[in-house]
Measured scan of single mutants.
Amino acid sequence: IQLFSRPDFLGDHFSFEDDQAALPASFRPQSCRVHGGSWILFDETNFEGDQHILSEGEFPTLTAMGCLASTVLGSLQK
């Protein structure tokens, strides 16, 4: 999965292949690309809070990911 700090796959980005119990504190994903398989994104660290399940594809905004525009993602799980 690739996470981007701005909508439309712009800004800083991080790529992950494994579960992340905590995303970098200063990084707030605003768009993402899922390459193969599914990922669960969580509103809180340690895989807690609301879950957003994404299958392979491109998600140019938080709302395209099924999140509110104000959502701050905290962790993710493959």
Rank of each mutant, 00 (worst) to 15 (best):
I1E: 02
I1Y: 01
I1R: 01
Q2W: 07
Q2P: 01
Q2D: 14
L3V: 07
L3D: 02
L3H: 00
F4E: 01
F4V: 03
F4Q: 02
S5L: 00
S5F: 04
S5R: 01
S5T: 09
S5D: 12
S5Q: 07
R6G: 12
R6Q: 15
R6C: 11
R6I: 03
P7T: 09
P7Y: 04
P7I: 05
P7S: 09
D8V: 02
D8M: 10
F9N: 02
F9E: 01
F9K: 00
F9A: 01
F9H: 05
F9S: 03
F9Y: 11
L10H: 12
L10E: 13
L10R: 13
L10P: 04
L10S: 13
L10W: 05
G11L: 05
G11N: 03
D12M: 10
D12T: 13
D12K: 09
D12E: 15
H13P: 00
H13I: 10
H13Q: 14
H13Y: 15
F14T: 07
F14K: 09
S15G: 06
S15N: 10
S15C: 12
S15D: 11
F16A: 06
F16N: 06
F16P: 05
F16S: 04
F16I: 04
F16E: 01
E17P: 04
E17W: 12
D18P: 00
D18H: 10
D18N: 13
D18R: 09
D18Y: 09
D18A: 11
D19I: 02
D19Q: 02
D19Y: 06
Q20G: 03
Q20C: 15
Q20I: 10
Q20E: 10
Q20M: 09
A21K: 11
A22P: 01
A22H: 12
A22L: 10
A22D: 09
L23G: 02
L23F: 13
L23W: 07
P24K: 01
P24I: 01
P24L: 01
A25W: 09
A25K: 12
A25P: 14
A25Q: 11
A25G: 12
S26I: 07
S26G: 15
F27K: 04
F27P: 01
F27R: 01
R28F: 11
R28N: 09
R28V: 15
R28W: 10
R28P: 03
P29W: 02
P29L: 05
P29F: 07
P29T: 11
P29D: 06
P29A: 12
S31G: 05
S31A: 05
S31C: 07
S31P: 07
S31F: 06
C32D: 02
C32G: 04
C32L: 02
C32R: 04
C32E: 03
R33H: 03
R33W: 06
R33Y: 07
V34R: 00
V34L: 05
V34S: 02
V34K: 02
H35Y: 13
H35F: 11
H35L: 14
G36C: 10
G36E: 09
G36H: 10
G36K: 12
G37P: 05
G37T: 06
G37I: 01
S38V: 13
S38A: 12
W39I: 00
W39S: 00
W39Q: 00
I40R: 05
I40D: 03
I40T: 08
I40Y: 05
L41I: 09
L41S: 03
L41G: 05
L41H: 01
L41F: 03
L41K: 00
F42M: 04
F42T: 01
F42Y: 12
F42L: 02
F42N: 05
D43H: 12
E44G: 14
E44T: 06
E44F: 07
E44I: 02
E44D: 14
E44W: 06
E44L: 11
E44K: 15
T45V: 14
T45E: 15
N46I: 05
N46P: 01
F47Q: 00
F47Y: 11
F47S: 03
F47T: 00
F47E: 01
E48P: 01
E48C: 13
E48G: 14
E48Q: 15
E48F: 08
G49K: 02
G49T: 04
G49W: 04
D50K: 14
D50V: 12
D50L: 09
Q51N: 10
Q51G: 13
Q51L: 07
Q51I: 07
H52S: 06
H52I: 15
H52C: 08
H52W: 15
H52L: 08
H52D: 00
I53W: 09
I53R: 08
I53S: 10
L54A: 06
L54H: 00
L54I: 14
S55Q: 12
S55M: 12
S55H: 13
S55R: 11
E56I: 10
E56Y: 07
G57C: 04
G57W: 00
G57M: 01
E58Q: 08
E58G: 06
E58N: 12
E58Y: 07
F59H: 06
F59S: 06
F59D: 05
F59Y: 15
P60V: 01
T61A: 04
T61F: 03
T61I: 04
T61K: 02
T61R: 06
L62E: 02
L62K: 06
L62Q: 02
T63L: 11
A64R: 08
A64Q: 09
A64D: 13
A64L: 05
A64K: 10
G66E: 07
G66F: 05
G66H: 04
G66C: 06
C67F: 14
C67L: 13
C67H: 02
C67V: 10
C67K: 04
C67E: 01
L68T: 14
L68D: 15
L68V: 14
L68N: 15
L68F: 09
L68H: 15
A69H: 14
A69F: 07
A69T: 13
S70T: 14
S70K: 10
T71P: 09
V72T: 15
V72G: 13
V72Y: 12
V72L: 09
V72I: 12
V72P: 12
L73K: 09
L73H: 06
L73S: 07
G74L: 11
G74K: 15
G74P: 04
G74I: 06
S75T: 06
S75F: 08
S75R: 05
S75Y: 07
L76C: 12
L76Q: 06
L76G: 01
L76P: 00
L76F: 08
L76A: 08
Q77D: 00
Q77T: 07
Q77V: 06
Q77A: 13
K78H: 08
K78A: 03
K78Y: 06
K78S: 06
